[in-house]
Simulated assay, not measured.
Amino acid sequence: MRSSASSRSAQDLVGHGARAWARAVGLAAMAVLMASCGSLEKDETAGMATDKLYEEARDDASNGNWDRAAKLYERVEARAAGTPLAQQATLDLAYAYYKGGEKAQAQSTIDRFIKLNPSSPAIDYAYYLQGLINFNENLGLLGSLAGQDLSERDQQASKDAYQSFRQLVTQFPQSRYASDAALRMNYIVNTLAQYEVHVARYYYKRRAYIAAANRAQQAVQEFQRSPAVEEALYIMAMSYDQLGLPQLRDDAQRVLVQNFPDSRFLKDGLVAAPKAWWQLW
């Protein structure tokens, strides 16, 4: 009896194993079929000439269909590797990512282009686009709703943008993009100065007078031609006054009066900015 039972048990195991194997094979076959169908869907442009594919990508970009345009530029870049068309596709791909809100992908794509094509005729545009990607960083929904000023955020993106524009203006002063880059550089400098003053004001209002004076002094030294210097000098004078340093206070106030004789800060002091709707303090 035991022998018979063992035999049946072995047969059942074999049968179960065979059925399991059959199911596994069936599932694998289905997976291969589905993958094939998926690849057929993804490869809808397989028979299209590369130049025609590029034209279609540009049409999508012109119509604002940035996601599809990016996918098509990726294929052009792969098919035309090592050609001028591939380089152009890379530039267009970075721009499509940028316009589609894919900042990280746009940045990595343009960085890759600059690294691989330092002598490209379009390198000036590459630097311009590299700066533009950081310059136009989106504040996001909360920033927009709260009315957050650009000068109140971390300025690393602005600093990166400034370096890209500076490289363009320095190396290619005759570039068609140089004048616009220079204007953006001026804007960035003013923004960076405003950021330093914003921090100095923050410290001053919290009675951290040494930190306030140091941050205001940094703004004055680094951004001498920025309008934000007016408030920076006033914060310096007031901070030194609170610290009991009359000579430094008088020096800062004298420079303020000489450069901004009609300064509103001398009349009104630090006027508190209106609070955003979400601020409870």
Rank of each mutant, 00 (worst) to 15 (best):
M1D: 00
M1C: 00
R2I: 05
S7D: 12
R8T: 11
S9G: 07
R23K: 15
L27K: 15
A29Q: 10
L33R: 09
L33Q: 07
E41F: 11
E44Q: 04
T45D: 04
G47C: 03
Y54S: 04
A57D: 00
R58F: 02
D59V: 08
D59S: 10
D67T: 15
R68G: 00
A69E: 02
L72W: 00
R79H: 03
Q88H: 05
A89K: 00
T90C: 08
D92G: 02
A94T: 02
Y95S: 05
A104F: 02
I110S: 01
K115L: 08
S120T: 11
D124G: 15
Y125L: 10
A126S: 13
N138C: 06
L139T: 11
L141P: 02
G143Y: 02
L145R: 09
E152P: 05
Q156F: 06
A157G: 03
K159Y: 08
A161W: 02
A161P: 04
V169M: 08
T170L: 12
S175W: 04
S175D: 12
S175I: 07
Y177M: 13
A178T: 11
D180S: 12
N190M: 04
V197F: 01
K205N: 12
R215K: 13
Q218G: 00
V220A: 07
R225P: 01
A228T: 08
E231S: 04
L233A: 10
M236R: 12
M238Q: 15
S239E: 05
L245C: 09
Q247D: 13
S263L: 08
R264D: 11
F265W: 15
L266N: 11
K267S: 11
K267H: 10
G269Y: 08
L270C: 10
V271I: 12
A273G: 06
A276K: 05
W278Y: 15
W281V: 12
